[in-house]
């Protein structure tokens, strides 16, 4: 995935998580019935949680921070010599 898309995904991830654990979605699974000995709501929350962690793990392996590889800074615009600046301003 291109870098910008990765960043967008990293931005979306916590909001996606928020949607998963907030009503109305969490209400769908609100039930104390048991599924394999575990209450359904608990199963849902832990599954969603694990899923988020895995997504976060995948993203974090791909996102590059500056201290990993000295990411080239955007080219500095050549500052004008002082006299020209004055003329501009």
């Amino acid at each position: 995935m291109p870098r910008q898309k990765l960043r967008d995904a990293a931005f979306i991830l916590p909001f996606f998580g928020l949607i998963l654990i907030m009503p109305p979605f969490v209400d769908i699974f609100f039930s104390a019935r048991l599924l394999g000995g575990i209450p359904v709501i608990l199963l849902y929350i832990f599954c969603a949680w694990t899923g988020l962690i895995i997504l976060g793990w995948i993203l974090s392996r791909r996102l590059v921070t500056d201290s990993d590889t000295a990411e080239p800074r955007p080219p500095t615009l050549h500052p004008l010599p002082p006299e020209q600046r004055d003329a501009d301003g």
């Binding site: 991830l13 654990i21 988020l52 976060g56 993203l59």
Partner: peptide, 12 residues
């Protein structure tokens, strides 16, 4: 859950 969300969004 709150801290989980904050750390998942660490990049920003």
């Amino acid at each position: 859950l709150g801290p989980t969300l904050v750390f998942l969004g660490w990049w920003y």
